[in-house]
């Protein structure tokens, strides 16, 4: 085992060439995941609500989006945007923006399913009671249904964030300088220790994802105590 290339380039794995050059490495991975999950949450919320809508057209639009995206491998989706984006906007789009859009569209579909299931899991009486006491449908959603169901969804969101963190590694295939790409670069430059380099970044990914997974399990246990149930 030769770990000296790893030790020598460890700061490059952590934040790329940051103070002098562009941000990269683990910092970029986390940034990508955080920005994408934030945007994907809103996309997923909208489509999840649309999926539950009474209007058939709205419901079908959401269904087609969710099913198509969930049936396509993320790698394919990233390449679609990589080729399509310049055609749509008319000029070449940086890889980073392309990746964020692809990750948001991809994760949005999964979050939409979480939102849909979360709303359906709430007892029907909640909606009926809210409507019965004079709230409009939108008010009932806004003040009664969503606050409860979104809280119950938090563990699923954390799990989705973990998946997303793992998925950001695919951005390396179109050249975004995140952790995996940095490892590839170092590995290609040194040529002596590919196994040690990839093992190191596997452990780095693992630490982040494992901490988050354990956190979501703990949350799940805590939240299940306060759930509204059918009686």
């Amino acid at each position: 085992m030769r770990f000296d290339p790893v030790i020598k380039n460890f700061d490059y794995f952590l934040w790329g060439a940051f103070p002098e050059g562009p941000l990269g490495g683990l910092a970029m991975t986390i940034l990508l995941a955080a920005v994408s999950i934030f945007l994907a949450f809103w996309v997923g919320l909208v489509f999840g609500l649309m999926r539950n809508s009474k209007n058939r057209i709205v419901r079908y639009v959401a269904m087609v989006y969710i099913e198509v995206v969930r049936g396509t491998p993320l790698l394919l989706l990233i390449f679609w945007f990589y080729f399509l984006a310049p055609v749509i906007v008319g000029y070449s789009v940086p890889e980073l923006q392309t990746t964020v859009v692809a990750l948001v569209v991809f994760t949005g579909a999964y979050i939409a399913e979480i939102v849909r299931a979360g709303i359906l899991a709430l007892p029907k009486g909640q909606m009926e009671a809210a409507r019965g006491s004079g709230l409009s449908h939108i008010q009932a959603m806004r003040f009664v249904i969503l606050p409860q169901s979104l809280r119950n969804m938090i563990p699923s969101f954390v799990n989705q964030f973990v998946s997303l963190t793992k998925d950001t590694s695919l951005a390396s295939t179109i050249g975004v300088l995140e952790l995996t790409r940095c490892a590839e670069q170092v590995s290609n430059r040194t040529l002596t220790a590919p196994m040690e380099i990839y093992l190191t970044i596997l452990v780095m990914y693992f630490l982040i994802c494992y901490v988050l997974t354990s956190y979501s399990r703990k949350l799940e246990k805590q939240l299940s105590r306060y759930q509204a149930r059918d009686r």
Binding site: L170, T180, M195, I201
Partner: peptide
């Protein structure tokens, strides 16, 4: 809890 892509590289190169 680790990305499949990196695991593929790991097995391929390591």
């Amino acid at each position: 809890n680790t990305p499949l892509l990196v695991q593929i590289y790991f097995w391929y190169y390591g």
